[in-house]
């Protein structure tokens, strides 16, 4: 993450998420998958554990993040302010 901080955050609504893997395809730098296939902030992305549901995004990732929000089959994603 740049010194200026994240451009935005990708909020994951865990009550909706089913780990179908589309967002991890679209945002390979920001997200990996956990043991069960759910999106996981890439190593080093998230400092505090409380932020694990709001993954910081760089400006360059915003376009892909918007696609992820649109394509998420479970409507589990939302872009929030930094």
């Amino acid at each position: 993450m740049s010194v200026a901080g994240p451009a935005a955050r990708l909020h994951i609504d865990w009550t909706m998420c089913d780990g179908r893997g589309l967002c991890t395809e679209l945002l390979p730098e920001a997200l990996t998958r956990d043991d069960w296939g759910y999106p996981l902030a890439a190593p080093g992305r998230v400092r505090a554990r409380a932020d694990a549901s709001n993954v910081p995004l760089t400006g360059a990732e915003l376009g892909a993040a918007v696609d992820a929000v649109k394509l998420c089959p479970l409507l589990a994603l939302r872009i929030t302010g930094p």
Partner: peptide, 18 residues
């Protein structure tokens, strides 16, 4: 489901980079 085996407690899977 792609995740069925992992969620049934099967062998841990490395999903790798998509």
């Amino acid at each position: 489901l792609e995740t069925a085996d992992a969620r049934r407690g099967g062998a841990r899977r490395d999903w790798g980079r998509p």
